[in-house]
Every structure is written in C-alpha cells, then in structure tokens.
Write a protein that binds this DNA or RNA. Structure first.
Lengths: 336, 336
DNA sequence: TAAAAGTACGAAAACGATTAAGTAAATGAT
DNA sequence: ATCATTTACTTAATCGTTTTCGTACTTTTA
C-alpha cells in the first residue's frame, strides 16, 4: 500500500509536508499542495485509518447499539428505517457505522468496554432495554451519545413526537364522529408513557367519557395478546366504536379477530394502528395509522451526534422531537 | 487509558513480555503470565485496536455491502434477518460488522477503496446490484469475500436453495390437486433464474400443461405490478387455479385484487408467496409460502468468511446452499 | 567438565500517520 | 542596514502495539 512516505519520496519533500498538504494546513504553498495532491491521487493513496486513529484517537466510526431481548430490532421496519436514516446521514458526513455488541469472541464484555476498545467517536442507542445496567454504564461513560426514543438526563435524544401522534390520531378519530374510543397501549417505557398521557389529555379536552375497561395493555407486536384484548373489548356490554392499537402489527391481530366474528372493518368497528409500516398500506382495508418519520429520526440522530463529536458543547442535554403524520387508510368509519 | 506500558511498569517486566503473555506466546513462564494477566484485568486493560491493526493489519472487522438502488435493503425482512444472522455469528467469533459505503463525506470513492481504507478483514456482499462495476471491482480486489444469493466465479457464496424451494412449493400445490399453475416470477438475477428453471423442470416432471400466458414477470415487492399481472391472469379465458408470486409482498397485492373481484381465497383461487416474512403469517388468510432460512444464511456467510480470513484456502470457490421449508398457511385450496 | 540445548525474558525496530518545534530564506518595518 | 515577521518547509517525537533477534541463565548431553 502506498503511504505518505512513498508520496514524500516521489515528490522530494518530507512526510510532514505531505501530511499537511493533504490535511489542509496553511503553511504549505499552493504550488506544492497541488503537486502533492496530484501525486497522491495518481498513486492511489488512501490514508491508513489505523495509523490516523492511533495518532489522533479519532476513528470516524460511530457505534450503534441496536439490540433487544428478542433480537428482533433489525426486523422491525420502524427501526430498520431509523437505521437506514442513521446510515445515510452518517456516511454523507464521513462516518461509518458499526454495531456494538457485548461479547467479543467467547468472552462477555460490557458495551462501554467494547466502545473503548473500538474507539468509537460516538454512539447511538436505539431499540434496547434502556434500563439495562450495561446501557446505563455506557451512557455515563463519557463518550458522546445520542439516544433514540428514550430520554436520559445527560444525553441528547431524538424522540418521535408521541404526544402529538396520539393527539392527531385522537382528533382524527373524533372528527370522524367517534366517542367510544378504546386504547390498547404498549408496555411501560418513555414512549408508552408519552402516548398514554397524551391520550388522557385528549380524553379530557374532548370531554370524552372513557370507561376504564377501554384501557388495556399489550406488548408491542404481540399479536396473540392483542387478540385477547380485542376479544375482551368486543365482549363488553358497551363496546367501543374504535380501537387504538400499540402498533400496526397488533392492529392486524385485532382486525383478524374482528373479522373472525363476522364484523366488518370499518363498517362495524374502527381500528387504528401506529408506526406506518409498509404492510399497513397494502393491508385490506388499509390501516389508518400514525406514520413516524423514522428516516428523519435516524438522520437527526446521526447529525446531532456528529455535531457533538466535532464540537463538544458545555450544555449537553437536548431533546429533538420529530413529528409524524396521520396516514389515512380505510379502517376508520365516518360516523356522520 | 491503560496500555501495555503501564502494565509492564506495574509488573516490572518489559512491554514485550506483557504483550507476549497476553497473546499466549510460549516463551513466557506460567508464573509471570498469570501475574501479568491478573494485573491487566485488575487495571482494566483493553488493547488499543488501532495500534493492533497498525502492527498486524488485522481489524477483526468485516464490512458488509447491503445497498440497493431503492435503499430498501434493510427494511426488507428477509435481508434484515440475514443481517441479524451475520451479526450474531460474527460477534460470537470475535468480529464486528460495519456497513460499506461508496461515499466518504462529500467525495465518492469506490467500495474497494473504502474497504482498503477501513482495512476490513473480509466482506460480505448481500442485497446489491451484483453487476454494478464497483461491486465487480470489489470482488476482484483480493479481499476475502462471501456473497449472498449470487455466484461469482471466484468467491464463496451462500445461496438460498431456490431450486428446492420452488420444487417443494410446486409439489405441495400439485399434491393439493392443482394443475393450472401460474407463475409470476421476479426480474432477472441468479435467484430468479434458479427459480424459473426449477419451475419448468417441475412442469416437465409433473407433466403439466402450462400455457405461456401463465408465466409473467414482476419486480420483487412491486405490488402495483403484481396487481396488474393478477388482473391479466384472472381475465384469461382459462384462468389458473393457483398463482405463485415472487414474494409474499406481491402475493398480498395479488390477494387484494382477487378479493376486490369478490373472489375468495383459497376457495376460488389459490395463492402462494415466497420468503416467509412475518406478515405472511398474520395475514388473513395466512399465506402458504416458502420460508427461507435467512438467519442460517447469515450465520453461514459469516462463519465461512471468517474461516477464509483465518486460514486462506487455495481452492476458493465454494457454494453453500441453504434449504428453506414450505410454510403451510391457508391460501391454497385442496382440490381433492 | 565443556559444549549444546533449552528457558525466560528484554531491547529495539517497526507499522503509518500527525504535529510541535525548529530553521532557513524571503519579506517587511524602522 | 538591522531586526522582526512571515513563509514554507523539515526534523523528530509520538501514538500503542507486535515481533525479531539478542542475551543471560539453567539444564542436559557426551
């Protein structure tokens, strides 16, 4: 491989001059700079990242923590899109992305040890059990961090606007004439709390009378559980006219139960999902859902992280909230 | 950060001794080795990867090329699962994975330049336009490579068993009594060729009489196109009793058209998908499809690549074919 | 008992870049 | 004309490892 030394020899200058010329130092004349650049290009020079890193402690590599208990993170379209957004933004800013793990060969190590070992310039945390002690340790390790869909008290975070998401859905459903609205929400997490809080606020503001049986809990993507919840709702003496699900997946589970009872959607009961995955669109009927702007979330996470890496701030904590938009399908009946 | 030098100082030995002790060299006594190891652990020593790489040219980092024109690779569940498989296998063998790109900051560079710059020990190519000249250049660059679902003439490849996949589906459908079987296949690629060839072989062996109108072409995941194809098939004077689609996504598109004509599935017409994505299972009716063992494909790709990295072979070309299995849903009618 | 072989460690040179500090020549100020 | 500044380079140290080649000491062999 061709190194600065080779270029220096060819150009009859010192390696220092080559390095400076290539890195835009001001104490190199335009003439030699151009000469060196031309020679470097001609020789197909590429800097040896390991050497650069060793000297500067910069890797231009950002780690991304993307694991959950079920290891389904990557296969979840929402997170896949976030990842895609991170990837393209980071790459356009000159960084590459590497997955973080907590085992290296046979041995278990901590996430933060891994990051230290690989010398990531920064880390994005998404789709992980945020209360895992290892994650907490990583967050406190001092490395620049951006979290997605979770707020720690000393990191930058990029959040989907869950408050507005639920509000928009509620207002849409309300505008369609629905008053008896059930909400099957996800398990406890920052995201869920925001959504549930927003739901209750809407209930209050819209002066709805929602009986406690209308509120149920169901793990995200757990279609089996969604099925059970839906059955319970349908069996109520006073069933809802519309059900909000934690996500599109569970909504489909619910729809299947409803259909199996020979009820029609949206004629007999309305259904609303969340996420806006592609399947929601081609489902029959298309599901009305809240499409999160996951690509933008990924992009913002990457750009804020890189900004933090390149010029560290005194004030660290910031929260970027990304709005989604209601995707109107045909699963909500207009009662007017 | 604690370095070998620090350990050496604490242990009153030379850095050479520390390095050797930690790397299992035989010319270190058990006694000092244990002493050094204990001290290293106590001090929280982690090797500086940049320095290791600079000296040994090994990064324990494998690059993965995972792009396609539409940038939808990651959001495709099949590829997401492959990636998941690669990730866990690689990590368990002590490697981490990084995405390959062809732009670094503002500048465009080639894939192989990127790999050289980052010094990946090896590369896995999946979900990419395999005839892209840049990809060809990468394949010929000399770096250890494993390709997924595509065969080059000098790389190891991991393929889904498309021949057996189509055969299994055809035999299943045949066993259910179908004789008029239409096949909407994907666009030209190694994968498609294998499937189409297998289809025709089955037609011959099962002595089916398939009119040319039954064979159509549709880009993978292109539901709009699948819709059109399905309409044409339904409009035939002699329509098929069963339609094979390129993938589950297009199958769902087809199903929607069929349903919109007030035909029932599987009573009036049968439908078969491919891939076995999770939507296929929760769809109503569940779609009979071929579930590719994508996790295993990813794992094999990673382990063969690492084997190739760690002990280069003289004979390079190898092809590993991974079988899938028919996932029986309720979209194929039993005609008996 | 002297030579050979084996054992356990150390000195020092790499790997390929960056960068502080130094220097010589050219230019500017007084 | 003298000193100060600026310009355009070079020298050399350094980052944290690995690894070759010594070396000193101990043990075995003949």
């Amino acid at each position: 491989m061709v190194s600065v030394k080779d270029i220096a020899a060819q150009c009859k200058v010192s390696v220092a001059t080559v390095s400076k010329a290539l890195n835009g130092y001001s104490d190199i004349s335009e003439e030699t700079r151009n000469m060196i650049k031309a020679k470097a290009a001609e020789m197909g020079y590429l800097p040896n990242m390991a050497a650069v890193t060793l000297k500067t402690s910069r890797t231009y590599n950002i780690g991304i923590l993307f694991e959950d208990a079920s290891n389904s993170g990557l296969t979840h379209e929402y997170f896949a899109r976030v990842l895609q957004g991170i990837k393209s933004q980071a790459e356009s800013m000159g960084y590459c992305i590497t997955f973080i793990t907590n085992r290296i060969g046979g041995k278990k190590i901590t996430y933060s040890e891994y990051c230290r070992n690989r010398q990531f310039d920064g880390v994005i945390i998404a789709c992980v059990e945020f209360n895992d002690p290892q994650v907490v340790e990583l967050v406190n390790s001092g490395i620049p961090i951006v979290t997605i869909d979770h707020v720690f008290n000393n990191t930058i975070s990029v959040m989907s606007d869950n408050v507005k998401g639920i509000r928009d859905l509620m207002e849409h459903v309300y505008a369609m004439g629905h008053r008896k609205i059930a909400y099957i929400h996800g398990y406890d997490s920052s995201v869920t709390r925001d959504r549930v809080t927003s739901f209750y606020r809407c209930v209050e503001r819209l002066e709805l009378d929602i009986p406690p049986e209308y509120i149920m809990e169901c793990k995200y993507r757990d279609t089996a559980r969604a099925t059970k919840c839906t059955k319970k709702l349908l069996d109520l003496k006073n069933p809802p006219t519309c059900i909000l699900y934690p996500d599109d997946f569970t909504a489909i589970g619910g729809i299947n139960v409803i259909k199996s009872r020979n009820l029609k959607i949206p004629e007999d009961i309305s259904v609303v999902g969340y996420d806006g995955i592609s399947y929601a669109l081609i489902h029959e009927p298309p599901i009305t859902t809240l499409q999160q702007d996951s690509d933008r979330m990924g992009r913002e996470a990457a750009s804020h992280l890189i900004e933090l890496i390149e010029r560290p701030k005194t004030t660290l904590k910031e929260k970027y909230v990304i709005e989604g938009s209601v995707l109107i399908g045909n699963s909500v009946k207009n009662l007017h």
